[in-house]
C-alpha cells in the first residue's frame, strides 16, 4: 500500500493531530522511506516464530488487593490547565 497524503491525513485524524497540507505531504514521503526499510522484514519466514512479549518471559505480577495510594487530587489538579471545583474542564460535549 502506498503512503499518500490522503492516507496520512486519515492517520493524523486517528492520532488526533492537526497537520497542514505541506506537512502531510512531507510526512507521506518520510513515512514511505521508513516503511520501505521496515519491509526488509518481509523477506524472513517467521511463521514458526512466536512474537516476543517480554525479553525475560516475565509475567505480570499480582499484588495484594490493598489501598496503596493516598488522595492527591489537589496536588494533581494544581498542574492541570483548567479545573473547577475538583473537576477537569473540557469544552462542552453534550448539548
Amino acid at each position: 500500500m502506498t503512503v499518500d497524503s490522503k492516507l496520512v491525513g486519515e492517520i493524523a485524524h486517528l492520532a488526533r493531530l492537526d497537520l497542514d497540507e505541506t506537512s502531510v505531504a512531507n510526512y507521506a514521503r518520510e513515512m514511505a522511506g521508513v516503511l520501505a526499510l521496515a519491509r526488509q522484514m518481509e523477506d524472513v519466514d517467521t511463521d514458526a516464530v512466536e512474537p516476543m512479549a517480554h525479553p525475560l518471559h516475565a509475567v505480570q505480577p499480582l499484588r495484594a488487593d490493598e489501598v496503596t495510594e493516598i488522595d492527591q487530587r489537589d496536588e494533581f489538579q494544581a498542574i492541570a490547565p483548567a479545573v473547577d471545583d475538583g473537576l477537569y474542564l473540557v469544552p462542552q460535549v453534550i448539548e
Binding site: 496520512v8 492517520i11 493524523a12 486517528l14 518481509e42 512466536e50
Partner: peptide, 29 residues
C-alpha cells in the same frame, strides 16, 4: 509527530500483523 503517525499506521486494522506482530517475531529471532 512522525513517530506517532508511523505507530498509529503500524497498529491500525489491516496492518498490525504485517508490521507490529512481524517486528515482535523478528525481536525473538
Amino acid at each position: 509527530k512522525r513517530r506517532i503517525l508511523l505507530g498509529t499506521y503500524a497498529l491500525s486494522t489491516g496492518y498490525y500483523d504485517a508490521y507490529y506482530l512481524k517486528a515482535q517475531k523478528i525481536r525473538n529471532l
